[in-house]
Design a protein around this nucleic acid. Structure first.
Length: 743
DNA sequence: AAGGCAAATGTTTTT
DNA sequence: CATTTGCCTT
């Protein structure tokens, strides 16, 4: 069997080579430097292809080269190709690399995120999709606001029913493709409550002409399912569909692909079940297993050779992921050298951990390396603070990824709301956001009055406001303030009409009073906000509209809603990268630190009980470890303050899974000797700073019993000692009055 | 209606 | 610990 396959393959290669010669085109570089598995993945002519690509095996490269192969060698027109990713960043990168490889730009090809492509569909078929032509995109913050508002009208107690829960529930239903009418009541109070709000939410979105993220996908799926003509059009066009990060697809996205693919489309899916870390967001690894069944005649190619990491790092990664049961099974291997051992550092607390990392970075830089090549990863954003301040103190330039995104910042959303209101007076969400910002005397009372009128008349808040003023339904003070606001918006609209996008943004930020409002805000915050507003203006300046028929402003607003705006600001500065493990997926760095390798933190306490969630944490650990190319540091803190409370966690189980011959345990300045099981660490040889005791030492106190020394503040007899007692927890004692004795 | 102070409340992230 | 939310006073 294998023999035959080999022969066919050789014949195929001969044919291919001839073909290349015939076309006399330089396509050799498409196959240049590919290993045999990669080459099969690029050139396979099976109808469908599933590439199981391990970390660092050249996943994106395969996708890009396969597209180039199809276009240049198989002469498939580029407009027949659709490539879909999850993030804008990945889509941008793919576009760039295709252009680079093909030289000729990827004209006619659709490359984008699921959401971006769905939006594009709905924009062209808004009528068939049952939407308004100028429908707005609702981001998650807008969504939460809307839900809160609906809860208020339904008189639901926000304490008993957290709005976030409604949001989460509604989104999960939509991710599964379920509308409220598809859900059966099961007599459960919680479910019936959720469902009740879901119904209300659906009809309100309809009314407000807004579409949330999940809706973009679901709506475009329903469009295809219900409209034969539209579907046929796209099925006839896109004969080649390629999906990146396939393990991250949720139910609707998978259905979307299946419907589009129909029966004559070639689907290529590239993914790694071991890197599925978005299960909590509806992603289903099962889709990888189902692919073969749903797409008949699928060729499966495994890419297991890793080109990124040393073999020690890979051994660590494999040891961690091996303990997961539900795997397709894949073992990464490399031709690379053993490399250095994985360093493990046991810190006393999070500050010591940060200090140690800073020291290592300084040494790395001192050795002539780039800060850009170093990344510090952590499980949750809260951990970044301590690391950040340590970097700041050491004057090491750093860049934090994630956290708050540009277009989600309050001042930016406010400015955008003014722009939205300029382009569409009936945008109620924008209206509500800025009607009293900066404060102009339109308070809660007036606003609820206007809302009530809007509901009665079934009109927008904008129209309701003029009705309220016209009918003298408000106090004269409120009426004047409201009229002033309406005049301001109208005036700005006409003033700005003929201006370019950047001028519009500039004018509106000034005229609305937002700029002065934030300038007046005291402290660093106001400054930063003003800077952000300026950055928004410059973003308007560099925006290039795609469609000449539509107004640049509306196009800008749509793009902003779909793009989180992870701008590449000061990318040129050589800086250490700080990010969560989640956002590190897809990236690689020569030097990687993973901080906070502790039980309850990583794996996270919320995930520790459930086996499924724990497996996902394990995959996250695998993702983290495989980011490292040459040197990996794992650190954990024996004591860490979480939410202001001190907690003591043992070293993460993921660390214990790594074979000890791969790990090099770092001992601080040779002062302390400790074992990984830390609790009963052996005594230090040198007393700490003349106190007569050492860190990690077991001590006895008359009242509190036995404990372990965790930290010192100061030195000599007046030093403050942090001790974790077995019975009473941690105490901070003055040494000379504590009356401690060694055990 | 607006600003100030106390209490609550904390995963992971993209779109 | 640090930020956001809600209540309460002016």
């Amino acid at each position: 069997m294998e023999e035959i396959e080999k022969k066919i393959y050789i014949m195929y290669r001969i044919l291919v080579t001839n073909l290349i010669n015939c076309i006399s085109m330089d396509v050799t570089k498409i196959l240049h430097n590919l290993n045999s598995q990669q080459e099969i993945a690029v050139t396979s002519d099976h109808p469908h292809l599933l590439v199981l690509a391990g970390a660092g095996s050249g996943k994106t490269r395969i996708l890009v080269h396969r597209i180039a192969w199809k276009i240049q060698v198989l002469s498939i027109p580029s407009h027949a190709v659709l490539a879909v990713t999850f993030t804008n960043k990945a889509a941008r990168e793919m576009k760039e690399r295709i252009d680079q490889l093909l030289k000729t730009p990827s004209q006619g090809m659709w490359v984008g995120t699921f959401h971006g492509l769905a939006h594009r569909l709905l924009k062209s078929h808004w009528r068939d999709a049952g939407l308004a032509e100028d429908f707005q995109i609702l981001d998650s913050e807008d969504q939460l606001r809307l839900i809160k508002r609906l809860m208020r009208t339904l008189d639901l107690d926000e304490q008993r029913w957290p709005p976030k829960q409604f949001q989460w529930w509604i989104n999960s239903q939509k991710d599964e493709g379920l509308r409220s009418k598809n859900i059966q009541e099961n007599g459960d109070l919680y479910q019936s409550m959720m469902l009740r709000l879901y119904r209300e939410y659906e009809s309100n979105c309809e009314l407000l002409k807004v579409v949330d993220f999940a809706e973009l996908l679901l709506r475009s799926l329903e469009l295809w399912r219900s409209n034969e003509a539209v579907l046929k059009h796209y099925q006839n066009r896109f004969k080649h569909v390629l999906v990146d990060e396939f393990q991250d697809t949720n139910a609707v996205q998978y259905a979307w692909l299946r419907v589009l693919a129909g029966s004559e489309c070639c689907v290529t899916a590239v993914g790694d079940d071991d890197q599925s870390i978005y299960g909590w967001r509806g992603a289903k690894v099962d889709h990888i297993l189902r692919f073969e069944k749903d797409f008949k005649d699928t060729r499966i190619v495994r890419l297991e050779q890793n080109y990124r990491s040393t073999s020690n790092i890979l051994r660590a990664a494999n040891a961690v992921i091996e303990r997961n049961s539900e795997r397709l099974g894949k073992t990464l291997w490399t031709e690379a050298d053993e490399g250095e051992a994985v360093a493990l550092y046991a810190a006393f607390n999070e500050h010591d951990e940060a200090r140690y990392i800073v020291e290592c970075v300084q040494q790395w830089v001192g050795d002539g390396n780039r800060r850009d090549d170093a990344a510090i990863l952590y499980r949750s954003n809260a951990q970044s603070r301590v690391l950040e301040s340590a970097m700041l103190r050491a004057e090491i330039p750093y860049r934090i990824y994630g956290g708050q995104r540009f277009y989600e910042r309050m001042e930016i959303k406010n400015a955008l709301s003014y722009l939205r209101l300029i382009s569409n007076k009936d945008d109620d969400l924008a209206f509500e956001r800025v009607v009293n910002l900066p404060t102009r005397g339109i308070g809660e009372r007036t606003q609820s009055m206007v809302r009530q009128i809007a509901r009665q008349r079934n009109c927008s808040l904008w129209s309701a406001s003029s009705i309220a003023i016209g009918n003298h339904e408000l106090s004269s003070r409120a009426s004047n303030a409201l009229a002033k606001f309406l005049r301001l918006i109208s005036a700005m609209t006409s003033e700005v009409e003929e201006l370019t996008l950047i001028e519009k943004a500039e004018t509106i930020i000034k005229r609305s009073g937002l700029l002065d409002f934030y300038k007046g805000e005291k402290g660093e915050k106001g400054m930063a906000r003003v800077e952000n507003l300026e950055e928004l203006v410059s973003a308007c300046g560099s925006f290039e509209p795609e469609d000449a028929n539509l107004s640049p402003l509306t196009q800008f607003l749509d793009q902003v809603a779909l793009d989180s705006g992870d701008r590449q600001a000061d990318v040129d500065e050589d800086a250490v990268q700080l990010m969560t493990l989640h956002s590190a997926k897809g990236l690689e760095y020569p030097l990687v630190f993973i901080a906070g390798m502790e039980e309850n933190l990583f794996p996270h306490a919320m995930s520790i009980e459930e086996p499924g969630r724990l497996q996902e944490e394990r995959r996250l650990a695998y993702v983290g470890i495989t980011r490292a190319m040459t040197k990996l540091y794992l650190t954990f803190a024996e004591s860490r303050s979480i939410h202001g409370r001190e907690s003591f966690n043992s070293v993460s189980r993921f660390v214990r899974d790594i074979p000890s011959d791969v790990i090099d345990e770092v001992r601080l300045g040779n002062t302390i000797v400790r074992s990984t099981t830390y609790a009963s660490s052996s005594l230090g040889s040198d007393p700490e700073l003349g106190t007569g005791f050492s860190l990690g030492q077991q001590v006895f106190h008359k009242a509190f019993g036995e404990g372990v020394i965790l930290n010192f503040e100061g030195s000599g007899p007046r030093a403050r000692v942090h001790i974790k007692f077995e019975e009473v927890g941690t105490k901070i004692l003055i040494l000379e009055s504590a009356g401690l004795s060694g055990v």
